[in-house]
Amino acid sequence: MAITHEMAAGMGGIRTAGDLVARMQMTKGMKIKDAKEYVAAKVGVSTFDLCDEAVMKEVREQLDIGHVQARVGASIGMEAKFNIARVLDMKIQAVENFKRKTGM
């Protein structure tokens, strides 16, 4: 079911910009059009390109915000979330916890 929904209508998660748009819906209650426009402006692509795997692979690698391919030296997990919080200009609770615990 998850795969069918993702194929039929989903944004593509970290292959594209699905996780980023989801974060804006979750934290700001933005409807899909507004959330896409916000993310597109922040990452520097059109809303049309947000779901393009080829375009977003380059963008995600340049911004170092995590991708499905685990490249050597690239940010993963919490590291990527630090970068996502900065790029989207938003607070991520787990990132705030990490900063507090490490005295950052």
């Binding site: 079911m1 929904h5 209508a9 699905g18 049309f48």
Partner: peptide, 21 residues
């Protein structure tokens, strides 16, 4: 057999019972 939304109309997917599946 399978159809999809038009390019540009993709939406976010969230889950209930996520890790139970």
């Amino acid at each position: 057999k399978a159809v999809t939304v038009e390019r540009g109309d993709e939406v976010v997917v969230s889950f209930d019972a996520g890790t139970l599946k």
